[in-house]
Design a binder for these strands. Structure first.
Length: 379
DNA sequence: ATCCTCGGAAACTAAAGACT
DNA sequence: GTCTTTAGTTTCCGAGGATG
């Protein structure tokens, strides 16, 4: 999967929405009530909220023949461009009913729960490679009438005296506390949020996005920005003195660090985004939308070939033999475990796309909706 | 549709090495 | 001594064939 989203923003101009003109959103009304999907964004900037945009690529299948079908809810483009001077702090909703804008990565499924194993499987289950339980006889043995022979196997004693090379210490941060790494890519460097900004909450599938340089929150509803500010943009405000932090975290849905998307007034004083490590967009590699190994894409074991034949009772060739007292099996432990892991990773390494520019990514391109409405359903 | 087999990834865990 | 890393060993998921 996920070979598609690859083109996301960079190819935004070729999304189905091509040609539609983003509509300027001068000032956002009261944000919709937060209904519990995500905690309210941290920090002093205004809450993230999105507007439902009809997805022109989806039409009412029940429309009478020939009749011009209308886009139907809830098939909306999920996330329009953020308001001026604002970047998404949270990932887009993943609730059912929210398909995703063309070219955008699909929602991340909840991470697969870790597999739990019993301490010791009974001999029957072990030889059948099936799930066992603590009970004796175990459930499976009972089911198949093997209760009589349902007994614990015996663990082989571990080899001793095997010398190892020097250990490579994993670098842990100075403070000793676990690094709060929300990046999805492997071996990626965690980029610290600007001073004063919180880390993303645990469990967020996508990286955070922090306010761009020069961002100033909109005035309270109903109020006007003071006169004289260009494009109606507010002058620097007293309290949120946002640090000059040009980098933002990569976000798969397009954030614009420096320049607003089409139709939005330019943000005064916003420099072109550059990440601290030089590559615009922070940490492009993998990171965003990496489905974290989840079932979704991984499939490392796909294409595995089976050459078995019912009758061949050769007991699991490459594996440790179990039934019977036999033991020996490749004493030099290259059991390929490590390699397997490595191999499994590195799928989909799409650099997250930044709409650091007017054609602010697919979302922006897709933005052609009518008057913005708060998106309540899934926020 | 269900059962069976079994490759291989994930989980577990203890030994070896590093650190205090 | 404790903590961390490494890797040996086991569990069991899940694909795919066999069977009814």
């Amino acid at each position: 999967m996920s070979s598609e989203p690859a083109k996301s923003a960079s190819s935004s101009s070729s999304t189905p929405q091509e040609g539609t003109q983003p509509q300027a959103v001068p000032h956002y009304p009261q944000p919709p009530p937060y209904n519990g999907h995500y905690p309210p964004p941290p920090g002093p900037y205004p809450p993230f909220y999105a507007y439902p945009i009809p997805d022109p690529s989806h039409h009412d299948p029940n429309a009478p023949n020939g009749a011009p079908s209308q886009p139907v809810a809830p098939f909306f483009m999920a996330v329009p461009p953020p308001p001026p001077g604002m970047v998404y702090a949270y990932p887009m909703p993943t609730a059912p009913g929210y398909p995703f804008a063309a070219g955008l990565p699909p929602p991340q499924p909840a991470p697969k729960p870790k597999r739990k194993q019993v301490k010791m499987a009974c001999t029957n289950c072990a030889s059948a490679c099936k799930r066992c339980d603590e009970a004796r006889p175990c459930e499976r043995c009972v089911k198949y009438g093997l209760a009589e022979t349902c007994v614990d196997g015996v663990r082989k004693e571990r080899k001793k005296g095997i010398k190892r090379g020097p250990y490579k210490r994993k670098n842990r941060n100075a403070s000793g506390e676990p690094s709060n790494d929300y990046s999805t890519g492997e071996g990626e460097q965690q980029v610290a949020p600007p001073p004063g900004y919180p880390m993303p909450p645990e469990g967020y599938p996508f990286p955070f996005v922090y306010p761009p340089y020069g961002y100033v929150p909109a005035p309270p509803d109903g109020q006007q920005h003071p006169e004289g500010s260009p494009n109606g943009a507010p002058p620097p405000m007293p309290h949120p003195v946002y640090p000059t932090y040009p980098a933002i975290y990569p976000h798969p849905y397009g954030a614009y660090p420096g320049a607003p998307p089409m139709g939005y007034p330019p943000m005064p004083g916003a420099p072109v985004a550059t990440s601290p490590n030089g590559n615009a967009g922070g940490k492009p590699d993998s990171s965003a939308a990496s489905p974290t190994n989840g079932s979704v894409s991984a499939e490392p074991s796909k294409g595995k070939k089976r050459s078995r034949g019912k009758g061949d009772d050769s007991s699991r060739p490459g594996k440790k033999s179990r039934d019977g007292p036999s033991e020996e099996q490749q004493p030099n432990g290259d059991n390929g475990v490590v390699g397997g892991e490595a191999a499994g990773k590195e799928q989909q390494t799409q650099p997250p796309t930044f709409a650091a520019h007017p054609e602010a990514g697919p979302a922006a391109a897709a933005f052609s909706g009518p008057e913005p409405r708060p998106l309540m359903a899934t926020m």
